[in-house]
């Protein structure tokens, strides 16, 4: 059982890597700073470690999908991230891709269940 758990952890890690990008992009039509994004995603059921999200935001900014601005008016300086024009386009495309993947996988999984039930 612990063996299965280990495998699951590894595969889930790989699986999450991509979905976190979609999750982060989805919330950034309004400017957000890193930790507010962590909380927002967490409230919506997507758990992401700050240690993963912060570097990811930087990478997306470097790739040009996000724009950033420092806000120094608050009690502590915060870096706000916002979707760029390219980022918006990419996000829309990603959503389409994701839906098609999810649909296909759903179908495959459901079919399999159906087969198994039929055998019983």
């Amino acid at each position: 059982m612990t063996d299965a758990k280990e495998h699951l952890d590894k595969i889930m890690q790989e699986l999450r890597r991509g979905t976190i990008t979609i999750g982060a992009l989805s919330q950034l039509s309004e400017p957000q700073y890193g930790y507010s994004l962590v909380t927002m995603l967490s409230d919506k059921g997507i758990h992401v470690e700050p240690g993963t999200l912060y570097p990811l935001l930087r990478r997306l900014e470097k790739q040009g999908l996000l724009e950033s601005k420092w806000d120094t008016n608050e009690s502590r300086p915060r870096k706000y991230y916002l979707l760029s024009k390219t980022g918006k386009e990419v996000f829309d495309l990603l959503v389409t891709e994701w839906k098609s993947i999810a649909a296909s996988l759903d179908q495959i999984i459901e079919n399999k269940r159906g087969d198994e039930n039929g055998d019983d």
């Binding site: 890193g34 930790y35 909380t39 700050p50 502590r76 915060r78 870096k79």
Partner: peptide
């Protein structure tokens, strides 16, 4: 420098929570 400021902010946010 940039990452240091961001990281400090993050840690303080997490502590506050």
């Amino acid at each position: 420098e940039d990452i240091a400021i961001e990281l400090r902010g993050l840690i303080e946010d997490m502590l506050e929570e």
